[in-house]
Nucleic acid binder design. Structure first.
Length: 861
RNA sequence: GGGCGCAUAGCUCAGUUGGCUAGAGCGCUUCCCUUACAAGGAAGAUGUCGGGGGUUCGAGUCCCUCUGCGCCCACCA
């Protein structure tokens, strides 16, 4: 307990209480509690390489209000922080900061030190190539720096996390759990390695997954190209025209396809066409995905121009003619051969010499150049009808990428998806807040195409615990993986030899080679319930927190994080990883557009806002948006939050300065009883909506009540409280009860202001105190009754009219009123009589006449 | 093209299973230094509840339809 300051202020509360909470272990998780006593949160690990923005503050505040509520309800809250610190952003930053480049084929150098800046502070121009483990060490240093900045932000915001439980998506624990999960899935044949068409970013030279795609509108052009029809019979006789935006893929053409109902092409189904320039005979086939109204209505299928090509290739059982390499250039050494009845027909041409001559203009060229060259060739050989017609069309990009994705064939690790129906059934046990976000999950499950490619050709991530045998000729067999054993984990195969091999056999004929790739970051973060709960690392902890109660996250990663977590839990454990998913919206500009990264917004970063308005005020703003709702970035709301915080301090000061009521004091006065009865209803409602994760409504209700409480009740009761006797004692008891209750209702939202006030008159932390209940308040009020309930309402309305009279007369509120006539219904006048003394005191009225009528009016005479 | 959400005062938003003259705060106008609070307080003005139909004694609320905005999914030759 401490004394009540003369001038209460919000300034400095963050630093003061952060320090004290840490020292007292206020939010420390008590792991002696059993699962039914625990409320566990599967905290989203923010990407520490991203820049901090106000959106993080909003969604994490939402979760914190729930954590604080549950803690006050008596749950032991498991609320860890997580850092998502692997991935591409960190890699880029480290390359820039240290002038290094990762080369997984290099051995680890334990004595490596990164290049130092010269006298002018410049790093060497040419980066130093270093091994993956060396590179990862550098990444970890950079990550730790950024994590400190994040922890500073979260602590200031007032998140009630137990920092001792912090987890990361790198490091030995996450790596071991991620690798172990992978090995178990491999064992169950759910993870598998396969050569398959792969979405590929030619710029970053890595595979990407369906969930990481986005569409971008880019400029392209239709090229109308004529194929030869040896048998004729097409709409244009013996030339068959297609429209394509990818003419450079002509050498990769494996078939033509039109819709089965398309009468123009029906006669051609089952026959063949011959590609221009390359003379490859390709079948003309029917498939429902072909769209008669697109281009000429018949398309060439290439391996691979887009994802539809992949579907056709698979469903029509077509051969593969890959021409685009992983670096985004066309294959250099393709050679067409004469068509023959036996042998590999992949590169068979009716005129190999011409095909090879034409291909010489394309081989080794970039896609851009190849397109230019092939258009020239087609034009020269009169195979193009007209000029290219410019269009803009949506093209798939990796969300982090700069160039359009290509589809290449490559050996990759996949995780088999369960059928969508199975997942949808599984999440019936998962409550979504708001419920309509469930549809996002179901839509995504239903739209999945193919399995989950978890391979990334990057460096700062969890390595695959896998090696491959090398035969006596020195060829690596990438389809015969040698998995690590679980006791080897965590393992980096580039530094540890494969089981049964010696390090000297690395990269040697008859030896082994390490898997050079790392896992998709979602493959690791999909195990946050296991990582945070320390699955098989600390089984005692795990059984106390798992499955989690709450998964909080934003709606944009339903298709990635939420989906992947449910899939992994389903496949590894046959269970749901958590029982509630609370989905946050975004912070948007006041004009409803997605928050831009413009200078204006950057200048109002989270630290500046917290500094200007205070943490409680920013939290108040954040909680204006209920689950799933976008929130406008509005400093006006923060101002209001700040005002609320100040009001809480001052109103509390008033209530406490009335002094402690005598031990035997009871609530006897009707006005006090009335106030407590409505407060009891408020408590019940806040509890009900908080149980439904509607923190926004809980705050709004408490706030509305509180302003009425200070404006009317406190003013009405003030004079009586200043006095003495049983009436005064009744006011003091009621004021303290109301204060305690209201502080607790605000505690999840305004942790600093409420804790400050609590410290003036109570021991311990308000955040470890018990959430209020309605019935004890009703008991203190001497039980509920309707007449008493009306007292506060009527008293408030009469007081407002008395103040209006003074305001209209432009006199001070202190001015006395000689006499008033109050007209109202009999029932309401009875309520008035119950509070008559308080009302005339607060209104400084000398005498009151009451007149029965139909509605309330107040006449000053 | 399919789906989800939103639309209430100039602004940010409440408005429960339909129920009296539709609310709060900000902003605006006027007044008040009042012993919790001038980073304050009191009072006031401000609305075709997006448009049009329907159900009902009664619709901001339920149904149909249209419009606008946002998002998700699909399409990508």
């Amino acid at each position: 307990m401490s004394t009540i300051p003369d001038k209460p202020t919000l300034d400095g509360l963050e630093a003061k209480w952060r320090q004290r909470w840490t020292a007292a272990g206020t939010y420390t998780f008590d792991r002696s509690k059993t699962r039914d006593e625990v409320y566990s949160i599967d905290t989203p690990p923010p990407t520490v390489s991203g820049s901090l923005h106000i959106g993080h503050v909003m969604s994490f505040t939402h979760t914190d209000t729930v954590a604080r509520y549950q803690r006050m309800r008596g749950k032991e809250v498991f609320y860890p922080m997580g850092w998502d610190d692997n991935g591409l952003n960190v890699e880029r930053r480290v390359q820039m900061l240290t002038a290094t480049l990762c080369d997984p084929s290099l051995p680890y150098d334990p004595d490596f030190t990164p290049p130092q800046p010269d006298a002018k502070g410049k790093l060497p121009k040419d980066p130093v190539r270093i091994s993956r483990p060396n590179f990862v060490e550098l990444c970890e240093d950079v990550v730790q720096e950024m994590e400190r900045e994040y922890q500073e932000l979260w602590s200031t915001v007032g998140l009630s996390v137990d920092w001792a439980q912090t987890y990361t998506t790198m490091g030995p624990v996450a790596t071991r759990i991620s690798q172990k999960g992978f090995l178990r899935l491999l064992d169950h044949d759910v993870a598998y390695r396969s050569g398959a068409p792969t979405l590929w970013d030619v710029d970053m030279k890595t595979a990407v997954a369906q969930a990481e795609l986005e569409d971008r509108e880019i400029a392209g052009a239709y090229h109308k190209i004529g194929f030869a029809l040896p048998g004729g019979g097409g709409p244009d006789g013996d030339t068959l025209y297609i429209d394509t935006t990818r003419p450079e893929l002509l050498p990769a053409c494996v078939a033509m396809v039109a819709h089965p109902d398309d009468e123009r092409y029906q006669p051609l189904f089952g026959t063949t066409a011959v590609t221009p320039l390359f003379g490859v005979e390709v079948p003309i086939l029917a498939h429902e995905l072909a769209q008669p109204d697109k281009g000429t209505g018949i398309a060439m299928i290439c391996t691979f121009g887009d994802t539809t090509d992949v579907i056709w290739w698979r469903e029509l059982d077509l051969p593969i003619r890959p021409v685009v390499r992983h670096d985004g250039r066309l294959e250099r050494d393709l050679t067409w051969v004469a068509a023959s009845t036996d042998g590999d027909a992949t590169w068979a041409s009716v005129d190999p010499d011409e095909a090879n001559a034409n291909y010489a203009e394309l081989g080794g060229k970039t896609i851009f150049t190849a397109q230019k060259n092939i258009v020239e060739l087609l034009t020269a050989k009169r195979k193009m009808d007209g000029e290219p017609r410019p269009i803009t069309h949506p093209v798939k990009f990796w969300e982090n990428g700069k160039k359009a994705l290509e589809i290449v064939t490559s050996n990759q690790w996949f995780i088999r998806y369960p059928p969508a129906s199975e997942l949808i059934e599984r999440i019936k046990g998962l409550e979504f807040h708001p419920e309509y976000m469930r549809v996002r999950f179901e839509d995504w499950a239903n739209g999945i195409q193919g399995d989950w490619n978890i391979t990334r050709q990057r460096f700062f991530g969890v390595p695959f615990p896998i090696w491959y045998p090398i035969d006596e000729h020195g060829d690596v067999d990438y389809l015969a993986p040698i998995p690590a054993t679980e006791d080897m984990l965590p393992v980096d195969p580039t530094t540890v030899p494969a089981p049964g091999f010696d390090e000297s056999q690395r990269n040697r004929p008859g030896g082994f080679a390490a898997d050079p790739d790392v896992m998709d970051t979602w493959n690791t973060s999909s195990m946050t319930p296991q990582i945070a709960g320390k699955w098989e690392e600390d089984p005692d902890l795990y059984q106390r927190v798992h499955p989690m109660d709450l998964r909080p996250q934003a709606h944009d990663i339903i298709r990635t994080w939420l989906f992947a977590t449910v899939v992994k839990s389903h496949e590894l454990f046959d269970e749901l990883p958590f029982s509630h998913a609370a989905i946050s919206g975004f912070v948007v500009d006041p004009d409803r557009k997605k928050l831009s990264k413009s200078k204006d917004n950057a200048e109002v970063g989270p630290f500046a806002l917290l500094e200007q308005f205070g943490a409680d005020a920013v939290r108040y703003w954040a909680c204006g948006g209920g689950p799933g709702r976008d929130v406008a970035n509005d400093s006006g709301q923060m101002k209001i939050g700040r005002r609320l915080g100040i009001k809480v301090l001052n109103a509390s000061k008033f209530a406490l300065l009335q002094g402690e009521p005598a031990a035997e004091a009871v609530v006897s006065e009707p006005l006090d009883r009335s106030m407590l009865l409505s407060l009891a209803d408020l408590v019940d409602e806040c509890t009900r909506v908080f149980d439904d994760y509607d923190y926004a409504r809980a705050l709004e209700r408490a706030e509305t009540y509180f302003w009425n409480f200070t404006d009317d009740y406190v003013e009405l009761v003030k004079g009586r409280a200043y006095g003495s006797g049983p009436e005064s004692e009744s006011a003091k008891v009621a004021l303290r009860l109301a204060l305690e209750t209201l502080l607790k209702l605000f505690a999840p939202f305004l942790p600093y202001a409420t804790e400050e006030v609590w410290s003036w008159w109570q021991d311990g932390s308000i955040h470890r105190s018990a959430w209020p209940q309605g019935d004890p308040l009703r008991d203190a009020a001497g039980g509920a009754d309707d007449a008493a309930a009306l007292t506060m309402t009527v008293a408030g309305e009469v007081l407002t009219l008395l103040r209006k009279a003074k305001s209209d007369a432009k006199v001070s509120m202190r001015t006395e009123i000689a006499s008033v006539n109050i007209t109202d219904t009999a029932e309401r006048l009875a309520a008035f009589e119950l509070a008559r003394a308080d009302i005339i005191d607060a209104g400084k009225v000398r005498s009151v006449e009451t007149v029965e009528g139909t509605e309330l009016s107040v006449d000053v005479t």
